[in-house]
Structures are given as C-alpha cells and as structure tokens.
C-alpha cells in the first residue's frame, strides 16, 4: 500500500463485499455461538425469517412504500423551496444578508424536537410527517446551495458579461448550469439525512411505516424484526444513492470528460 495509489476495480468491489461478509460473520458468531442473549440481539437467520414473515404475512411492503413516499414527498417540497432560494442567496448578496443569519440559526434546530409541536399543529396524519422531513431538510439545502453558488468562478461570470450576458443571464446561463452537479450532490446528501427524520417521525403517533413497525417490534421484543427494518433502510439508502449517481453521470457528462 502506498498513499493515494489507486486500487483496481475488481479489487475495490471484492474489498467492499468482504467487509459485509466479515460483519455478518462476526454477528453470526456472537449470536449463534451464544455469546449474546437472544432477547437482546437476534441472530442473522432469525432476522431473515422474521423479515420474510413481515413481508409475506404482515404487509411490511406497504410500510416501506409509505415511508418512501413520506421521505420523497417532504424532501421534494423542501427542494422546491430551498434550491431557488439558495441560488438567489448565492447570487445576490443582499438577499443572502437578509436570510443567511436566520437560516443558519434554524439549521441547528433539531427536526426531531419539532415532532411534538408539529403533531399539535398538523395532527398525526401525513401532513405532519411531511412537515418533519421538510423542516429537517429545507434549511440545510438552502445554506449548502447558497455556498456552492456563491463560489461560482468569477472569471466565468466575467467572460459571460463580455459576451453580452446581463445580470439575469449570468445567473441563468453560468451560475445555475455550473453548479448543477454540486446541487445534485447536496440533494443526495440531504436525502440521506431525511431518512433519519422520517423514522423518528414514525416512532410517534403513526399507524404505518418502517419506524412504526420498529416501535411495535420493540414492544414485542422482536429484535429480528427491528434489525430487518434497519437493514431495509440501509438498502434503500444504498439503492437511492446509486440511482442518484447514475442520473448525475447521465445529466452532467462534462464532469467526467
């Protein structure tokens, strides 16, 4: 091994998979070998069996669908508000001066702490779940997009001006296309965080969703089900990450050239 020396593609995949294998092996040894009591931690085989039961008998697929819909719904609403505002803040400094201090403050308000308040305001229906995701995501996206757009290369902006662009043209034809890949990357990152908010939101006052299943399982001491739920979230995260990357590669070929 030498610093920064690249690793081959096959080796990379093999190494990545081998850690998963190692992780599951350690888990299997700890549980099946009797080192950890069953009621605290289910073994991998029980976990898979519980998962299968959940999916076939208890309609867990519906819970998964509900949770995905909540995350995506709340997240899309947040992005619709936050991306344009972030772009305006990055481009126009007075707008940034107006919003930035408040947004910076609001970003540190924990979304999960808003759950009780949002239940009071919006009840325990879908509106409240979407609101939690929205509150948790919107400020993060605004700030990160504003920073990215604010760092647009000056020389490219000047080049556009000398080619006849006006102020709006510079925003539309330089700042936005130049930062689009960065904005997509920000959305990918924040979507990951949104998953933590939705689970918390589903712990309280919920009748469906992955988080609801996890809380129900806790009451039954069904650790296999809990772990299965957590693993499902991880897998969905991996898949959505991968999809995001594929779409980005397709949307922004100039990045890879």
């Amino acid at each position: 091994m030498r610093p920064l020396q690249p690793v081959g593609n096959t080796t990379r995949i093999l190494l990545g998979i081998s850690f998963f294998v190692l992780f599951f092996a350690a888990w299997a040894v700890a549980t099946l070998g009797g080192y950890v009591p069953k009621i605290f931690l289910a073994d991998p085989i029980t976990m898979v069996k519980d998962g299968w039961l959940l999916l076939t008998k208890f309609g867990f697929a519906h819970d998964i669908a509900i949770t995905i819909w909540r995350v995506v719904g709340g997240f899309v609403l947040a992005a619709i508000v936050a991306v344009p505002l972030g772009i305006l803040m990055g481009a126009y400094k007075p707008i940034e001066a107006f919003f930035e201090p408040f947004v910076s403050f609001a970003r540190y308000l924990p979304a999960s702490a808003f759950v009780p308040l949002l239940i009071l305001w919006a009840g325990i229906g879908e509106k409240q779940k979407l609101a939690v995701i929205f509150v948790g995501s919107v400020f993060q996206i605004v700030l990160m997009v504003a920073v990215a757009v604010g760092q647009t290369r000056r020389d490219l902006v000047e080049a556009a001006y000398t080619l006849g662009s006006g102020d709006g043209g510079v925003v539309r034809r330089v700042m936005i296309p130049m930062n689009a890949p960065e904005i997509a990357e920000i959305l990918r990152l924040v979507l990951g965080w949104a998953w933590t908010y939705v689970i918390v939101a589903e712990f309280i006052g919920s009748s469906a969703g992955i988080g609801h299943m996890i809380i129900d399982s806790q009451a039954l001491m069904a650790t296999g089900q809990i772990i299965f739920g957590i693993i499902v979230i991880g897998i969905i995260g991996l898949v959505s990450d991968f999809a995001f990357k594929l779409v980005n590669r397709w949307l922004f070929p100039w990045r890879l050239a």
Binding site: D155, L156, A160
Partner: peptide
C-alpha cells in the same frame, strides 16, 4: 459603463464554460 458584447475579451486563464 459596463461590460457588453461590443467589447469581446480573451483572458489568460482558460475561461471556456466547462458544461458547454
């Protein structure tokens, strides 16, 4: 008073738009 298309400019640093 301000930049315009009547004065074209070529800079020392490479200023092509990388996404075009």
């Amino acid at each position: 008073t301000r930049p315009g298309a009547d004065r074209g400019m070529v800079f020392q640093s490479y200023t092509l738009f990388p996404w075009l």
